[in-house]
């Protein structure tokens, strides 16, 4: 350690040159006046540095904000995290909605009462219509041959012709 100290002697002498770098005489004459004037101005319009006020009222929040000061990587990381959180919440919400829909669909499946009622209505209309053929089957509700060769049990024809 002693050897190292000796090795740095020249460097230390060179660094002492910095002590001679001083501002011209009178440089600090108005320094404190400027500081006090700025403090007064900030107090006068009551819009002093918001950050400073934040620090006195909520130091934890000020420390949190300070984490981001001059750290683009932290800002980017935080923003990315927020975006991921947003995307994740959207995906989860959609999944939850789908699950609810399929659950309610399953509950309606075993009782095609609505469809029976619709059939009854169309029959009444047809009877009173004087031979008019009425069909409540829109094209999209036609039985579709699915890939597995089975008909969709939910889609039943509701066409009644005289």
């Amino acid at each position: 350690m002693k050897e190292n100290e000796q090795n740095f002697d020249e460097l230390k002498k060179l660094l002492q040159l910095k002590r001679h770098e001083i501002p011209p005489p009178g440089y600090f004459n108005n320094f404190s006046d400027k500081v006090v004037a700025r403090i007064k101005a900030a107090e006068a319009d009551h819009s002093g540095p918001a950050y400073d006020r934040l620090q006195s009222h909520a130091p934890w929040l000020a420390r949190f904000i300070a984490m981001f000061e001059a750290k683009p990587s932290v800002i980017a990381g935080f923003a990315t995290g927020l975006c991921l959180l947003l995307v994740l919440s959207v995906v989860l919400t959609e999944k939850a909605e789908n699950a609810t829909l399929s659950l309610s669909a399953n509950m309606q499946n075993p009782m095609p009462q609505g469809m029976a009622m619709a059939s009854l209505d169309t029959q009444i209309l047809a009877d009173g219509g004087g031979g008019i053929q009425v069909s409540t089957n829109p094209v999209s509700l036609q039985p579709v041959a699915n890939l597995f060769g089975q008909q969709n049990p939910l889609l039943q024809p509701a066409s009644f012709a005289h």
Binding site: F31, P49, Q55, S56
Partner: peptide
């Protein structure tokens, strides 16, 4: 240095309560 020194003193004043 001048600007930062002034700002440091101003900040210190506003944070004196802490």
């Amino acid at each position: 240095a001048n600007d930062l020194a002034q700002e440091a003193f101003i900040k210190a004043y506003s944070a004196l309560k802490s």
